[in-house]
Structures are given as C-alpha cells and as structure tokens.
C-alpha cells in the first residue's frame, strides 16, 4: 500500500516542480494542486486530515503538504532554523501529520492549529529547548462524538480569530508573532493580547462538556 502511495506522490511531481523553483522564499500560491481546491469550503483542511486518518489518502496528504509544508518551513526559519534544517524538520512535521492524523479532532482544532502544535514540538526538539510536558490526554478519542456542526463552527471561529489577528495594530501583532516564533520569554509577553479569544474558548469548552457528559452516560449504561 505504501508503494502505491509513493507512486501517487511521484505522479504529482510536475505540480511540485513548478512550486519549488526559487528557493528564495518566494511565496507558493498558485500551484496546480491548489487551483483545484475549493477554498470556500471552510472545513477543507480538516476534511483532508480526516481522509488521511481514515483511508491513508495520499492525494489528500499531497494537498496538505503543498499548503502546509512551505508554511511550516517558514515558521521554523522564523524561529531561528537555517533553511536546510527547516526543510528537514518540515518534512518530519508532515510525516508526523500522516502518522498522527487519527488523533486530530476537528471539533477542537483547525488543521492549521493542529499542525502548528506539531511544528512547535518539533522546534522544541530541534533547538533542544526545555522539555514541554503535555497535559493528560482526555479519556476519549476524536471519533467518539465528532459533530459536523461543531467542526464547521470551530473552523469559522478560527477564521475570525485569524482575521482579528490580521487587524491588530502592528505593534501588538508583532508581539504575538514574536511570542509564537519563540522569541519572547514569558516575562516579555504582554498581559493583554488584544485578541478576542472568548468565542473560540467557549466553543471548545462546550465541546469538552458535551464529551464529558456523553462519557458519563456511556459509563452508566454499560
């Protein structure tokens, strides 16, 4: 099956060759693969991760790769990696996307958010920064009760958050970007972010409550 996947990937090479011209940091925007994407579908990226999880769909993965790998590479370079290391680590990050796709929960994160967390963890390893212990996992998987509506609503909230970030005064936005590129210590981060995080927080909080509730019911009926 993996041979099949690699073949698929190879047949898509022409699209890639067009993208990779110019290692000068030129934004890749209009590749053959992306032109076909329906950008109006807010759950597109989440759907693609789900397809990788369920069907090991190489085409879905290729689309994710074309969109996210150059962004992960840029993010790692912004975080202090040289281009060669960033390229290598971006490949690792995308390989992790493939391997951990089943852990992605579209009711709790957008694909970009989830891939960010993988890139962040790779950066911590790469720069040999402090270990970052993770919270205890919730006792349920993403596929237990994922509601299409929840997933769509979360993607919309994420989009609004991104718009709010884009609309912040430059100084504030730069502070936030620096924080996420790993340039600020916790002391240097401002007390007020200026970002409207309430909506997305409440949405995720409700999703958690519903899941806890359904977990309890399951326990009581079994």
């Amino acid at each position: 099956m993996f041979d099949q996947i690699c073949d698929d990937a190879t047949t898509r090479q022409p699209g890639h060759a067009a993208v990779s011209v110019g290692a000068d940091g030129r934004a890749m925007g209009r590749t053959a693969g992306q032109a076909r994407l329906d950008k109006s579908d807010k759950t597109l990226w989440a759907e693609l991760v789900t397809r990788v999880a369920r069907a090991q769909d190489a085409q879905a993965f290729t689309m994710l790769f074309e969109h996210f790998a150059p962004r992960v590479k840029a993010f790692l370079m912004k975080s202090g990696a040289d281009p060669t290391t960033a390229e290598e680590c971006a490949q690792d990050v995308m390989a992790t996307v493939w391997h951990k796709a089943a852990q992605f929960d579209p009711a709790r994160a957008s694909a970009a958010t989830w891939i960010f967390t993988i890139a962040r963890n790779r950066r911590i390893d790469m720069l040999r920064r402090d270990r970052r212990p993770e919270p205890e996992d919730l006792p349920w998987g993403p596929d237990s009760e994922t509601d299409q509506f929840d997933a769509l609503a979360l993607q919309q909230d994420t989009e609004k958050l991104a718009q709010a970030l884009n609309a912040l005064p430059e100084k504030q936005r730069k502070m936030i970007e620096s924080a996420y590129f790993g340039d600020l210590t916790h002391n240097e981060i401002a007390d007020e972010t200026g970002l409207p995080l309430g909506t997305i927080k409440s949405r995720i909080r409700l999703a958690l409550e519903r899941l806890r509730h359904s977990m309890t019911e399951q326990k009581e009926t079994t």
Partner: peptide
C-alpha cells in the same frame, strides 16, 4: 489557535 493563525497567515511560505 492563535499559533495556527500565525502559521497559516502570518508567515510568507518558503
């Protein structure tokens, strides 16, 4: 999610 927005929108892809 803010990190996701930074990754998706605030870096020029390389």
């Amino acid at each position: 999610s803010v990190g996701g927005a930074v990754l998706d929108q605030r870096v020029a892809p390389v």
